[in-house]
Amino acid sequence: MLGFGVAGLEPVLAALASLHAKVLRPPAPGERGMRCVVQDPDGRKVELIAAMPDTAA
């Protein structure tokens, strides 16, 4: 599976929806931030991660 860090999931998912990408796992909190998994038109799975702001400051 290929993975990309993104600034925010909502705008990326909106853009991918217009390209007919399928959401396999909706956005949910993970170890490194919000993550989701989409499938491209060729069937490849792509993980998207939006880092959460550091709250330990």
Score class of each variant (00 low, 15 high):
Met1Phe: 09
Leu2Glu: 11
Gly3Ser: 15
Gly3Asn: 14
Gly3Cys: 13
Gly3Met: 13
Gly5Cys: 12
Val6Asp: 04
Val6Glu: 02
Gly8Asp: 15
Gly8Leu: 09
Gly8Asn: 14
Leu9Met: 03
Leu9His: 03
Glu10Ser: 11
Pro11Cys: 00
Pro11Val: 00
Val12Ala: 05
Val12Leu: 04
Leu13Ala: 02
Leu13Glu: 03
Leu13Asn: 01
Ala14Val: 12
Ala15Val: 07
Ala17Gly: 03
Ala17Met: 02
Ser18Asn: 13
Ser18Tyr: 08
Leu19Cys: 14
His20Cys: 11
His20Asp: 15
His20Gly: 12
His20Gln: 15
Ala21Tyr: 15
Lys22Ala: 06
Lys22Cys: 07
Lys22Ile: 08
Val23Leu: 09
Val23Trp: 08
Leu24Val: 15
Pro26Gln: 15
Pro27Ala: 09
Ala28Met: 09
Ala28Gly: 08
Ala28Trp: 02
Ala28Gln: 10
Pro29Gln: 11
Glu31Trp: 13
Glu31Ile: 14
Glu31Thr: 15
Gly33Tyr: 05
Met34Ile: 08
Met34Ala: 13
Arg35Ser: 14
Arg35Asn: 11
Cys36Tyr: 08
Cys36Asp: 01
Cys36Pro: 04
Cys36Met: 05
Cys36Val: 05
Val37Arg: 12
Val38Ala: 05
Val38Lys: 02
Val38Phe: 08
Gln39Trp: 00
Asp40Gln: 00
Pro41Gly: 03
Pro41Tyr: 00
Asp42Gly: 01
Asp42Tyr: 00
Gly43Phe: 07
Gly43Met: 06
Arg44Ile: 06
Arg44Ala: 11
Arg44Asn: 13
Lys45Gly: 07
Lys45Cys: 11
Val46Glu: 10
Val46Pro: 04
Glu47Cys: 02
Leu48Gln: 03
Ile49Tyr: 07
Ile49Gln: 07
Ile49Lys: 06
Ala50His: 01
Ala51Val: 10
Ala51His: 10
Ala51Arg: 10
Met52Gln: 15
Met52Gly: 13
Pro53Phe: 00
Pro53Ser: 03
Pro53Gln: 02
Pro53Asn: 03
Pro53Lys: 02
Pro53Leu: 00
Pro53Ile: 01
Pro53Val: 02
Asp54Arg: 10
Asp54Met: 09
Asp54Gly: 07
Thr55Gln: 12
Ala56Cys: 10
Ala56Met: 12
Ala57Ser: 13
Ala57Phe: 10
